[in-house]
Design a protein around this nucleic acid. Sequence first.
RNA 1: GCCGGUGUAGCUCAGUGGUUUAGAGCACACGACUCAUAAUCGUGCUGUCCGGAGUUCGAAUCUCCGCACCGGCACCA
Length: 631
Amino acid sequence: MSTFYVTTPIYYPNSEPHAGNAYTTIAADVLARYHRLKDDEVCFLTGVDEHAANVYNAAKEEGLSPQAYCDKIAPTFVKLWERLNISHDIFFRTTSDLHKRGAQKFLNVLYDNGDVYKGKYEGYYCLSCEEFFSEKELTDEKICPVHKLQLQWLEEENYFFRLSKYQDRLLAHIHENPDFVYPAARRNELLNFLESGLQDVSISRASLSWGIPFPFDPEHIIYIWIEALSNYITALGYETNSEHYQTFWPADVHMMGKDITRFHALLWPAMLMAANLPLPKHIVGHGWLTKDGEALSKTRGIFIDMDGDIDTYGVDAFRYYLLREFSFGNDGDYRPARLHARYNADLANDLGNLLNRVLGLVNKNFEGIPAPTTPGEFDDEIEAMAQTTIDQLDAHISAFAFDAALETIWEFVRRINRYVQQTQVWTLAKPETKPRMGTILYNSLEALRFISVLISPFVPDTAEKIQKQIGLQEFDTVAEWGRLPVKLTVSRGEPIFPRIDTKQQKQPQPKAAAEPKQKKKEKTTDLVSFTDFQKLDLRVARILAAEPIEGADRLLKLQVDLGTEKRQVVAGIAEHYTPEALIGKQVIVVVNLEPATIRNVESHGMILAGSGDSVVLATLETEMPLGTQVR
RNA sequence: GCCGGUGUAGCUCAGUGGUUUAGAGCACACGACUCAUAAUCGUGCUGUCCGGAGUUCGAAUCUCCGCACCGGCACCA
């Protein structure tokens, strides 16, 4: 018997879970359930990543301690997983002692093996700016360009992980294991990234308090990514080298959204190499769900109404739709109308109705399930197709092609509908043909049992309902043809997927759907003194000229008029403003910002702009004289 | 700017060691059937296979150029 260990990322509990989390977790759930079906010993891990800065900030805004905040939010994840029928074995919280001790041990090992070193940021430092300046920014006099103060040579200590050391081994690993990263497009990106060289990464934070302290230096906490990634082993009992840990590590699949594949495919394996631990087998980064083609975004109020759709169509339809409609590596646009169509066409018409019609015929003509006494046309074909369906399903799941996997099963569903049709089974109730009728019905029911097993990883409730109606007392998980007992009393119940007419479809609820949750700011920052604020010199200026900068997608070179002087400023707004649109606009400029050279263009100041999912220039309500101070 | 991906019927997508009539499901139309959830089964339908050039007896499939969208890197003072 083999083992199978599948994980989702640990999610940030800075707010309640969203559809993207659900998508990842459902996919992982299908894998877990599929492997249990194959009698593998399975461990399915999910959880929350609690020591995150955004959690700390969210807690602060609600006036709660970070721990109290986590204690409040974590259950909302558990609740959603229950609703979505997620069969995780472990729901892991990184504030647990098991994790804290495990993460510290892991770090100790990295340290003992010589791959963690205390490095220092060192350089010339301006006490007023509280910043280091790189050599190229400095003149020979070593004075701060902003404050004109003498700079000091300073060193700030920090722990680093020797990521660079593993560059070649990572490259080799990814080259030699084409299946390591899925899909292939991500893999190419990673190789590309690797070839451009890896830097050591800072893995400590001295300035933060919310986190796990370094075991050998409590002044520092462990950087969130290092800590988070280690959850995949700490949750299994890495700390004590438990049997569970030995059984399941290395992981078979780390499932995640495409945005975090790099951490999982480079940083994490490098750390494991440093600790002399085996690497996970597959890093799977799926595409994102979008809504009307746009990325989901809390701030912009773009989200998927999971609750509403699940209320209308049921959990299984929701799970089915997500996995059937989209090819897993690509982004998929979530459309309720498509969910509706899938529900009626695939679930209600093809599958639900098939069950219903077959059970109806059995009920009407037999006492319990008839014996297959009289083989005939198509029977062998059906049985053979059952077997090929299994094989294809297995291949597709191994390639994380859930859409193809479901399509394969549904080809079989449609074949059985055709079987019933071709044999005209309802016309065979006469005594001389009744044995044949019984055989056809037996085969159809066995096919349905077979199908219920195959779909059970995807739509577990539906699978159970089918077997229950067929008359099986306990769920039979074995996909072998001919196991269905005869004489079972079927209990044809309500249709498992009643058709939902378009007219009855809920109109988009104006209340919940439309209003973006406008409740919180993106993040809070620490307070600054008024004196500090006063250091900023903000002025009204007019843009005189704007032009693109060669070789930079986001940058524009602007000439601005401050009334008393004209300046050149570089702004990263090329993706949101055309040069023509900018000329003549009044904007607010930070004039005493240190000069910088970006892409070989000098920038003396900074244009203020709202900067989130979109970028909008900050202006005054009405125009004011150039050079007016803004405060 | 560099690198990668995608672009095939109204929709979601298959399809490439080049070969002749380009596929599936949904949707749509018609027909059959009536056991069943106005379900099922059959038949049909629409395509400049992003555009252009090239290689070839022959290209959606190979090469080059271009366009659009997506992503990674650089970059966002």
